[in-house]
Amino acid sequence: TTVKLGDIKVTFDNPEKAKKYAQKLAKIYQLTVHVHGDTIHVK
């Protein structure tokens, strides 16, 4: 599962960890989390 934020891409083996990371980023940057299959976009 890949978390994308602009040019930053972080890949996790564990989808749950990816989701938590995405939510953490979203909170920090006051953005929202969008899940598209294996990719989680923070924008």
Rank of each mutant, 00 (worst) to 15 (best):
T39Q: 06
H41D: 07
L31N: 01
K24L: 15
Y21C: 09
Q23L: 12
K17V: 11
T32M: 09
K4G: 04
L31R: 01
I40N: 01
H34R: 06
G6C: 13
L5R: 04
K27Y: 13
K24A: 11
D7S: 15
T1K: 05
Q23S: 07
T39M: 10
I40P: 01
K17T: 12
D38Y: 06
T2A: 06
Q30T: 06
K9Q: 12
L31G: 11
Q30S: 11
N14C: 08
V33P: 01
K19T: 07
G37Y: 05
V42H: 01
L5Y: 13
A22D: 00
L25Q: 02
T32A: 09
V33E: 00
T39L: 10
K4A: 09
H36L: 13
G6K: 06
K4V: 15
A22I: 07
I28R: 13
V3Q: 02
D38V: 06
T32P: 02
K4Y: 14
A22P: 00
K9Y: 13
F12G: 00
G6Y: 09
K20G: 06
T32Q: 10
I28D: 07
K4C: 15
Q30G: 15
A22K: 02
K19Q: 10
A26S: 06
I40A: 01
F12Y: 02
T39N: 04
D7V: 14
V35S: 05
V3M: 02
G37T: 03
G6H: 08
Y29D: 02
Q23H: 11
T2N: 05
L5K: 03
K24D: 08
V33Y: 07
T11W: 15
Q30I: 04
K24V: 11
T1S: 05
L5T: 03
T1I: 12
T1L: 08
H34W: 10
K4S: 08
L25D: 00
D7I: 14
Q30P: 03
H41N: 06
N14V: 05
K9I: 14
Q23G: 05
Y21V: 05
A18T: 01
K9P: 02
L25Y: 03
Q23E: 14
E16N: 09
E16I: 10
T39H: 07
V3Y: 02
K20H: 08
V3H: 02
V3T: 02
I28T: 07
Y21P: 00
K17L: 12
A18I: 02
K4L: 14
T11A: 07
H34V: 14
T1W: 14
T32K: 08
T1M: 11
K4R: 11
Y21H: 03
G6S: 04
D7H: 15
H41G: 02
Y21K: 00
K20A: 12
E16R: 08
K17A: 13
G37F: 06
V10Q: 04
L25E: 00
I28A: 08
Y21A: 04
A26L: 04
V35M: 09
K4M: 14
K24G: 06
E16L: 09
T1Q: 04
D38S: 11
H36E: 15
L25F: 03
D13F: 10
I8P: 01
L25H: 01
I8H: 15
D13S: 13
V33D: 00
V35T: 07
E16M: 10
A22H: 01
V35Y: 13
Y21R: 01
V33T: 05
V33S: 02
H34P: 00
K19N: 09
L25A: 02
F12L: 02
V35I: 13
I40R: 00
Y29K: 03
I28K: 15
P15G: 06
T1G: 04
V42E: 01
T11Y: 15
Q30L: 07
D13I: 09
D7Q: 14
D7A: 14
D38P: 06
H36T: 10
T11Q: 09
H34C: 13
Y21T: 02
A26T: 03
T2S: 07
L25G: 00
A18Y: 02
Q23F: 11
V33C: 11
Y29W: 08
V10L: 12
K19C: 15
T32D: 06
K4T: 10
H36S: 12
D13L: 11
Q30F: 09
K27R: 11
P15L: 11
V10H: 05
V33W: 09
I8M: 12
E16T: 08
L25M: 07
A26M: 04
T2Q: 06
N14H: 07
F12N: 00
K43Y: 14
T2F: 08
F12P: 01
H36G: 05
N14E: 07
H34G: 03
G6N: 07
L25T: 01
T2I: 12
H34E: 13
D7T: 14
V42D: 01
A26D: 03
L25C: 11
D7W: 15
L5F: 15
L31T: 06
K27E: 14
I40W: 05
H36P: 00
D13A: 11
D38A: 09
K4D: 04
I40L: 08
T1E: 02
K17E: 13
A26Y: 03
D13G: 08
V3I: 06
Q30V: 05
F12V: 01
A26Q: 05
I40F: 07
I8Y: 15
K17P: 04
T2Y: 08
D38L: 08
A26H: 03
N14R: 06
K20V: 09
K19A: 11
H34N: 05
L5H: 08
T2R: 02
Y29F: 12
G37M: 05
V3R: 01
E16F: 09
D13V: 09
L5V: 12
K43V: 15
D7F: 15
I28E: 09
L5C: 15
H41T: 13
K4Q: 14
H36M: 14
L25S: 00
V10S: 03
H34I: 13
D13E: 10
A26R: 05
G37V: 04
K27W: 11
I28C: 14
F12C: 07
Y21F: 13
T39D: 04
F12S: 00
I8F: 15
H36K: 09
H41K: 04
F12Q: 00
T2H: 09
